[in-house]
Structures are given as C-alpha cells and as structure tokens.
Design a protein around this nucleic acid. Sequence first.
RNA 1: GCCCCUGUAGCUCAGGGGAUAGAGCAACUGCCUUCUAAGCAGUGGGUCGCAGGUUCGAAUCCUGCCAGGGGCGCCA
Length: 556
Amino acid sequence: MTIQETIRGIVENAVSKAQTLNELPDIPLEEITIDRPQNPEHGDFASSLPLKLTKVMKVPPMIIADKVTSHIEIKGPISKAAVTNPGFINLFVDSDWLASQVELIIKSGDKYGNSARGSNTHIQIEFVSVNPTGPLHVGHARGAVFGSALAEILMASGYKVHREYYFNDAGSQIQKFYSSLYARYMQLFGREELVPEDGYQGQYMVELAKDIKRDLGAKYHAMTREDAVSELGREGINRMVETAKSDMQILNVSYDTWFEEKSLFSEGQYDRTMKLLSESGYLTEKDEATWLKSTSLGDDEDKVMVRRNGIPTYFATDVAYHYNKFLERRFDRVINVLGADHQGHARFMKAVPLAIGINPDRLNLIIYQLVTLKRGQDSVRASKRSGQMETLKDLVDDVGPDACRFFFLSRSPRSQMEFDLDLAKKQSSENPVFYIQYAHARICSILKLAEKNSIDYSNGNVALLQHKGETSLIKKMLEFPEIIQSVSETLEPHHLPHYSVELSTMFHWFYESCRVVSDKPQDVEITKARLKLVEASRIVLNRCLKLMLMSAPTEM
RNA sequence: GCCCCUGUAGCUCAGGGGAUAGAGCAACUGCCUUCUAAGCAGUGGGUCGCAGGUUCGAAUCCUGCCAGGGGCGCCA
C-alpha cells in the first residue's frame, strides 16, 4: 500500500466515525482525494473533502472539516491534523515514522515500488509495428521508447506483460517493395529497370540492393524474373526486419514476439475470424466486395474486408490479429500504441473488439503525436516516403540511447514535439539525463568510500535522520510507489522521468547540506544512519533508471 | 468540409477541478584545501491562445472563435 492510500484510509475512517456518531449525515462517500500541497504550511497531505461534501451533506465545509479532523488519530504516520479555510484538512507526517521508512526501502531492495495490483492479468502491448518496407525514423523511436518503458512499469505493478511487434510481410505494399528492390538490384548489373512510380524510391533501397549483391552476388540475376522478384524480395524483407530488430536493440528495446502478418493465413486465424464475423451477421456483400458493417459498432464508415479481386484488406487482418490476441491467446488486456499518422484507424480499432464479442474496455489505444525535426531554421517532417528523413539509427548514434530515451519519455504522447537536432547534440552534456545519472554516480561514489573505509552501517539508526535535507529526500522516495501505480493506471509513463529529476534534486540537495562519511568520532552514528539513507536513495534512483531502460552509471 | 491532438516563462515541456502555476535550457550573481562543481544557493522572466459558460473554486470541465500538427484509399 502506498502512503497516499494509507492517508486516504485514515481520513475515510475519520469520516465514517463521525457518521456513526451522527455528527455528520450518513451518506455514501465517493473516492476521497488526497493531494500533496505545494505550500509546506499546508502540510504533507491535504484533502478538500469537506468542500466537496458540503453540498450533499448540507453542512458548512468548516464544520465538516472540524468533525472529520477530530477523529483523525495522531499516531503512526500522522503527527498533526489541522483545518484551514475555506475547508481543507491538512495532515503532517511524523518525522520518526518517516525516518523508519528508510529501513523498509532497504528491505524491499530492487522490489521497492512493486505491487501485485496486476497479478493474474495478462497484458499484450503492441508498439512500433512498422512494416519492413523502409527504415525506422525518429517518430518510431518515440513509440519504441514509450511502449518499452510502459511495459517495464506495468511489470513492476505485477502485470504479466507480453511485448509484441507486428509486421506486414504480405500484401500490395510488399509487392511494391519487391519490384522496387528488383529494379535497384538489376540496375547494379546495368539493366534498365525502373522503380515503379508508386514504389519505394528511397536511397536505402539502393543500399539494400548493393548489400545483397555484395553478399550473394548475381544469384538473382540468373533466375527468371518472376522467381527473382519474389526470392530477392524475401531476402530484402528479411534484412529489413533484421535492421528493425537491431534498431530496437540500440534503443534498449526488446520484444517477446515479432508477429508475422502472413501467419494469420497459414495458422487459420483469418478463416476463423471471417467465419465468426459472418455468423454474427457483421458481413455484407456490396460492389463484389465483402464489407464489415462497422458503422453499427461505432465506426464512421463500413470497411472493406475482402476486395473485389478476392484479396483481404488490412482491416481483415487486423480483426484476425485481435481475434488471435483475445480469443486464442486470451490476453486480458491489449494495449496498442499508434502514431498519429494512423489515428484514422482508431475509430475502426475500437469497433474491432465489439465485432468479435469482446468488451472494448479491454483494448487501450494510445496515440502519440508526431515528431517534427528541426535542423537550424528548417523543420523537417518525418515521413517514410519523402526523401529527407532522419532515421532512428542516426538519431541514436548522435545523442546516445539514454538521452534519446529520456527526451522522448519525458513528453506526454499527446503533445507533438519538436526535436531540435542541433540542440540535442549541443546539449548532450547539459541534458537532464546527466543530472539524474550524475546523482546515481555520486551515490555510488559515497557507498564506495564507505566500503573503502570499512564502515559497517548495517546497524545504523535511521531515527537520527531528522535534518530537513534528509526528511525531504525520504518524502520524495515515498512517492515512488505512487508514481508506479499511477503510470500503470493512466498508461502515462512520462511522469517517471519528471519524478526522477525531482528525486535527483532532493538527493543533490541532501548531499550539499549533509556530510555523509565523516572521520570525526562524534559523527560515527550519523554517518551510519546517513549511509542507510544513501543506500535507499541508490535503490530508488536505480529503479527509476532501470524502468526507463536507461543505464545507471556508478561513476562519471 | 468532417474527425483527432495541441496552444502554459525567451526556447523545450510538466501540471488536466483546489490554496501563492512548476522544471530543464538560455541570461545574471555568488559557492570547490572536505564523500564527484555534469553540483548547490540566489535574481530576473507569465493577460496559462481569445471570448463566454458551469462551479464555493477553472491553466484544468463545456461551447464558440483564432492558430499549429495529423487523419479522412478496396495503402498499412
């Protein structure tokens, strides 16, 4: 249980006690909100509950506040409860209780902040899922960072998380890729082959053809055109997938499954899905094509499932994919992370669970806004088909995986962000990421010194931690489990990097105001107590960095 | 035209019903004989796009308008 939940329970008890004694009207309560006031005079926690209850209870807020506060027991975490105008209840945390929490953090170790909220819930999270017809660009980096960090945090909350990358390896775009690659390959042998008008024109296709020629020579030149297109194409797609995998790796992103779209046909999901949809009456024929009546499920237009030429659309495979996720692999929840360029797909996606008889609440769609790049004065749009493009790899090579992850993760997915390439490079040593990592390195350096001096602080008395620099740091550390919990509920991981900065600030401040390792004989006890605090800080900050999939350097 | 997202300090962004709106960067002033100065302390900087509305209370919710980004294929 987090501290906030403990406090909420205390207030809740006080209210019901007042109700039992008929001091307040006995009406059912909604969830009680507990805030952390920014003004320290208003305590460590505050509740505006009386202001909210005044209307339904028909009692002035200050009276409610008085009655509730009189039943708040001054013990455990609470040292003082006060009422302030116009009807707030302010709660102050007991400093001895606070100091004792350091022991708990050390005892929890790398499990501090974990919870069992998600136990027995299987979540599948799908992110990036770029088709292997082009390189990954900076926008995909945003999705990758978001999805991978969210997955880590959900795991900390006890969910069973399955990370998945879905890619299209069949269909018309793949055919275009095949013929584009064939043309580039044959051009290397002096043949006048043209890349199709609507094909993939990018320079990377030339490079890909060169690589294949270098590794496999004229192998495909000797084949019939038909064989060459498909075999060379497959070789090309395989290489593109490998590149995507290595791009994910350099960003510290790993997956449990790379899911091939074509398996939906070979494994039968497509057929079973169409049968289910047909039996439920969601399919209809029009203009020689098969349509899904998705408007009846909230979509703004019906969608073609099978084209006039008999080939299924991506709408059909998407339904089959979710049929597989929900009905075959039986995930309790599914999270799909999409770029804003796919937002038109969102309304349809929300209809998909309904079409296969699944509660739509089990599907979460997260749409992140696009990344624009700025180089000098010029804004560059990240788009796969335009010529100019900053690839994910170029970006990571430039600013490093840690800075890249921190920068993307700090932004809420709904805000479109401008990535100033020049600034990112220039700032690389003034970046907030170093602020956090530096705090971690400082911590480790203190612990190293203690070890060198053979200080055994296992019997340190944390009750001695009463300095403002110490208590502020402990308070901040106690917020960590709340951050994990709130990110797991709201699916908004950007709070974690912000918290990490705040925690680092508290540590740096403690470091400046409290000398830890001291040689003076009279400081033996406080040194040991502070070393425990430093160890606890290491645990929490290290967890932050690890959950963000960033490195936690022990020296810098 | 319709749909989605955004508009907060010079810049990049948090805060998304509660008390005096925050951080980083940039600018300015101090602080290293002591565990890492990639740090700390301090100063300046705001009609929270505009206008109405709801509320005891609005940066936050609702409506309209303005501005920016994205989406409206039998492409994925």
